[in-house]
Design a protein around this nucleic acid. Structure first.
Lengths: 245, 245
DNA sequence: TGGTCTCGCTTGTTTGTACAAGTTGCTCTA
DNA sequence: TAGAGCAACTTGTACAAACAAGCGAGACCA
């Protein structure tokens, strides 16, 4: 592990453990540098990690302060329903209800950076959390990974993990659009809610390490089952609000 | 403006303008350094900004690639409805429907880091976008800024901006919880939708520069009016999904 | 008492250097 | 031809040094 990652980890542990209460000041860079026997630049790199996580606030001239004490989650936990469920101590289940190849629609072609009409794999999955159905996933996979996806067990728990183990595919970048929609007939039937009841929708496009779009998906969560949380600051944020389309 | 900010701006403009298409490679650090006549460290800092914005992906050993071409928005635009509306070319309106002081509830006291029962200011606002009502805002302000808030014009467009100009208050850090809820009777009446129809809810807590919580709010958007968008990667993300509470 | 000013402290920016580690394409070999 | 392996290239980590800029507290003055 890199030096700065180690220092960041120590500081994060201290904050999560409560050694520094919310609002308290962190030691100065100079003090941290001597404590960890590292250069000031390395310490700055470590602290930058915590700032990006939203745990620490920083202002030129003033000592850094602690803003929160909750460990934030990794990209993998955000992207993979199963890995997220495991990390928060729940059990994830899943079942493929439909899977077929078809030509891509124009909007899918744009999102997957392929030519319109090129064949894609369309999959409908129902996901459960501790046995309760909470999520309907309508995913479209680009043609080049379709064979690997089709080989997966229909009741496969973590698609992300299986794809990594099978063909070494790593999902590295993602874009997520979050809004609220009314449950359609199929949504309502699968999730066991009334038609028109509120669902939290997450439309995402995921890209491989090399920048090649691999899948795009329309995920609908039963209201109350899942909440997205973002921490941001004047110096670091990655959230955007957009006009409805 | 700092050197690295200038370089980041130039690169961002080039990407947004389309000089580098999505999936294309960015110049190497060495080339950028000589082009901008800066040290490699400075260039790295500039590129780090774009990586944090989700515009650029980076992997050790490989050239950096362009992931997106949409300018992401600032903290101010995220936090302030009016500033966001202006930046996307719409007109924001607002009206205070109710404003009164009352003792804080235990959960509010926790979120605002005050003692339970301490007086807070509770405000109900209806926000319009281009004349259409799209957002019901139920905000609770900590006692120490209540006087400044009460002095504001009820039809004030940007509360954030007015508070800055009046008392120099800067909102610097925020936490946001996003989920979907059904419209209550009051929500439905104000937004002109049916009871039980889906709303996108954003619960936020905002903190001043010094780390002092200033307000917490329950904002409900009419479905279809607003979408949140997050870009993330294995190396940088600030989004968290949480189990429903 | 109240405001201002200055000084020390702390974080932000920039440059330079050196080495580590991962990627990519080419070459060589079996 | 397929695979191993090398070599050049590119990004990541770490250190050191110097100056800029903002903050906060105490000193000082009216």
């Amino acid at each position: 592990m890199a030096r700065y990652e180690h220092i960041a980890g120590e500081l994060r542990d201290a904050i999560v453990r409560g050694d520094y209460r919310i609002g308290a000041q962190l030691p100065t860079e100079a003090e941290l540098a001597s404590r960890f026997n590292a250069a000031r630049g390395t310490v700055r790199q470590a602290v930058a990690v915590l700032v990006a996580e939203g745990l620490v606030g920083t202002r030129q001239g003033a000592r850094r302060i602690v803003l929160g004490s909750e460990r934030s989650q990794s990209f993998a936990e955000l992207h993979s329903f199963a890995q997220w469920a495991r990390s928060v101590g729940h059990r994830a289940g899943g079942l493929v209800l439909d899977s077929h190849r078809r030509p891509s629609t124009p909007s899918e072609a744009v999102r997957l950076a392929i030519t319109p009409g090129e064949e894609v794999l369309s999959v409908l999955r129902l996901r459960r959390l501790d046995g309760e159905p909470v999520l309907v996933e309508r995913t479209v996979y680009a043609g080049w990974i379709a064979p690997a996806v089709e080989k997966l067990d229909p009741a496969c728990e973590s698609v992300t993990q299986e794809l990594y183990e099978a063909v070494g595919l790593v999902f590295a970048y993602g874009e997520h659009l979050i809004d609220a929609v009314a449950a359609g007939a199929e949504d309502a039937r699968l999730l066991g809610v009334r038609r028109g009841s509120p669902l939290l929708r997450q439309r995402r496009t995921t890209t491989s390490q090399e920048g090649r779009p691999a899948e795009c998906s329309d995920d609908r969560y039963r209201a109350g089952s899942v909440t997205f949380s973002i921490r941001n600051s004047t110096t670091a944020n990655s959230l955007v609000r957009r006009a409805g389309d």
